[in-house]
Amino acid sequence: MLLTVGIGIGVAVLDQVSKWWAVNTLSMSERVPILGDLLGLQLVYNPGAAFSLGTDATWIFTIISAVAVGVAIWFTLRVRTRSWAVVIGCLGGAAASHLGDRLLRPPSFAQGHIVDFIAYGDWFIGNIADIFIVGGVVAVLLLSTTEHNRDTAEAQQ
């Protein structure tokens, strides 16, 4: 449990510190290229979800973030392996950081906009928490598959 909580806190702090840096360093009107047009830095405030979907439903994403944090806490109390502890910590920390943005950032309580600043070509702009969410989901799929295959092999013996 301590590993999961520690990783979660680390992910949330890393995400919030990187957002603080972005807000205090980057301009909304300027894109700073890192790898040409493929990767850059550009500050935006996203009221919606991934790809700026649902920009008029910020309060729904606040609820979804709160539920995700609750689910992460529930799993934290039940995790039995180090690999699952790491994954749950990553997902929980990212969800907690997004929930913090939704609750505390302008324009108002529970209507806050997410700070995004990592520009992936012309596809979308994200943040550190988004990287941990995507990586965490991939890890959940891999762990679920490998555990299912292992359990099936053990049952056949």
Rank of each mutant, 00 (worst) to 15 (best):
F132S: 10
P107K: 05
A110E: 09
N127R: 03
C90M: 15
A95V: 00
G135W: 11
L99I: 01
L99Q: 08
P107N: 10
A129M: 09
F132L: 04
H113D: 12
V134S: 14
S97P: 08
A95E: 05
G93T: 14
C90I: 05
G100S: 08
I118W: 02
I88V: 15
I118A: 04
A96G: 14
I125F: 11
S97V: 05
I114Q: 00
L91Y: 01
G126H: 04
R105W: 11
L103V: 11
G121E: 13
G112D: 11
G93H: 09
G100E: 00
F109P: 08
Q111G: 10
G112K: 06
C90Q: 12
G126M: 04
I114K: 03
R102C: 06
S108T: 07
A119T: 03
I133Y: 13
F124I: 01
G89S: 04
G93N: 12
I131Q: 07
A94E: 12
F124C: 09
I133Q: 13
L99N: 09
A95D: 07
V115H: 03
G92S: 14
W123M: 07
G89F: 00
I133T: 07
H113L: 05
S108Q: 14
A94M: 12
G121K: 10
R102W: 08
D130A: 00
A119W: 04
D122V: 02
